[in-house]
Amino acid sequence: MNEDERGSYAPLNSNPKQRARLLAALYLAQEQYGWLSSEAIQYVADKLSLKIGQVQSTASFYSMFRLKPQGEYRIQVCEGLSCYLVGGAEPILDHISRKLGIQSGETTPDGKFSLEVVQCLASCGTAPALRINDELYERMTFASIDKLLESLGCKI
């Protein structure tokens, strides 16, 4: 164990409120780097005087923290109930999966698209829905998905 590693097991900052800033700090790091690499996690731990294990345990618990590199366009397919009832969720995921040649949780080799399933995006009145980066798209059909992907530079 080198000095740095030992350092990460150093005693905690005694102010418990310090850790309360962790989620926000992880979001910032993720925004900056696109995902949370072990370096990013180390950096956050240092900044907040937390143990690396504490940061890792929090980061790995929440689905919105990405511990793998992501594509330029992050496609999130809603698998909420309303989407499921109107024929969304699985069929839409399969469709995009076929178009991009990747499964949920993967990124295309060119780093352009990643695909994932997310819980309810709260667009139930206008389901099925999906989100690409921060943009929400509703009442999706296979045709509208194709158009959307094409506009983002997906060759079909």
């Binding site: 309360a20 989620l23 926000a24 992880l26 979001y27 618990f61 929440y62 689905s63 919105m64 923290f65 997310v118 819980q119």
Partner: peptide, 8 residues
């Protein structure tokens, strides 16, 4: 405001 991170 505290933002969650996607855990039901």
């Amino acid at each position: 405001i505290k933002e969650g991170a996607g855990a039901f």
